[in-house]
Nucleic acid binder design. Structure first.
Lengths: 217, 217
DNA sequence: GGACTATACGGAGGGTTCCTCCGGTTGTGC
DNA sequence: GCACAACCGGAGGAACCCTCCGTATAGTCC
């Protein structure tokens, strides 16, 4: 559930201040989860009191951890990215390289749709400061994609002329378009298409499409 | 002040229902103006009560005319487009073709910066229905630009290989970038640059840049 | 194990905004 | 000039925002 890299303080500053007290850390985690839910349902404008309620915590606690709505949005966003990135090496241990890639991409779709209004909310609230966040996130996502694609390529299960950014771009682009047309079925179809395209022309090609067996969203 | 094409009912449906009563029409207009102001100042999330207050009208009246925030945003948006489009032929009567074009583009800058958060607010609130609005608006804007550019080209005052969409795209793109960098001076400079570029290579070229005398925003 | 303190918690409360509802007012057609 | 449909205003209940402070507890030192 929790990712190992998320027990930092509220802000991005990495000053070595004393770690959170146990109960505080617990509540922080619960708040983050509740906020993820609420933002997914109602967008970034969802009620903060609702979030506190779902986390089983008073509003005061919420405000102490995240003094600002933007601050909360940022942390939820980072948390979401953490999870996606952390999944990459884990999947690689459990599945064969191509399936790992396919499953990861499926998770990435979830990430993209969850982050829906977050980026614009962040950009609006933090101005130019947001650039640093996005740059960081971008880099980490590319790293994860690179890891998986590289493995699939080395195993001869993905064409060698594809690049990590190709995947990120095409998938996130697809999600935007699909979100606009409100059609989850289409998302699935196009996703399968991209993945098959990725495999097409790979050295070890017995390219019978079998991208159906994704864990569905 | 009012544009001739704006006395329609609240929604986009063009059913020929009886015209608004005189006082209602007045109030509608006042509300639209107030909303334009408030949205420009505080974005699409500006207070509705504040809008009613500025229009010198009760909230009830506001809600009767515009049952939904999205509805109000849409009308303000359309109203804004109406004004920009209606200005084109008028300018063409009053000024020489190139000055008309330059002045219009200057007004267009105002429009772009005013519409700041509106498009995303609309898209969010109305989903796929918003596409029709944007298509319509897009077409009308291109029509206006085409009228002015055509005239300038015929008069030999603008290069002939430019197209209306070039202007719309470059100017609105410029505005976004400029808005991000919070620098109105830069906007002016870049705008002058675009306009001079438009004139460069025109048949009747005594191309001494004189794009300074724009009515400033 | 017990006591002490920095840290964290909860929720009451004052202010703002949202939206609805209905009694009173006014424009319009006859 | 009259009657009525159309319109107006703003009170009021609900939801939300954010702050503040008395209370509870985790961590530490003896």
């Amino acid at each position: 559930m929790g990712t190992q890299a998320t027990d930092g303080r509220t802000s991005g500053s990495d000053q070595p201040c004393r770690p959170l007290r146990a109960d505080a850390a617990r509540n922080r985690e619960k708040l983050l989860e509740a906020a993820t839910e609420v933002f997914a349902e109602h967008g970034t404008e969802g009620s903060l009191e609702e979030i506190a309620r779902r986390a089983g915590v008073g509003v005061g606690t919420l405000y102490r951890h995240f003094p600002t709505r933007a601050c909360l949005v940022e942390q939820v966003y980072r948390h979401s990215v953490d999870e996606v990135c952390a999944a990459a090496p884990r999947l690689l241990e459990q599945l064969d390289p191509f399936d790992a890639l396919a499953t990861w991409v499926d998770g990435f779709v979830g990430y993209v749709s969850r982050k829906k209004g977050m980026t614009s909310a962040l950009r609006e609230a933090m101005g130019p400061d947001s650039d640093a966040i996005f740059a960081d996130v971008h880099e980490r996502l590319e790293g994860a994609a690179s890891l998986l694609l590289g493995a699939a390529q080395q195993a001869g299960m993905a064409r060698t002329d594809a690049e990590p950014l190709d995947i990120l771009r095409s998938v996130s682009g697809m999600c935007m378009a699909a979100a606009a047309s409100q059609d989850p079925e289409r998302t699935k179809r196009v996703l399968a298409l991209v993945l098959d395209g990725l495999r097409y022309g790979a050295p070890a090609a017995e390219a019978s499409p079998r991208t159906e067996n994704l864990a569905s969203v």
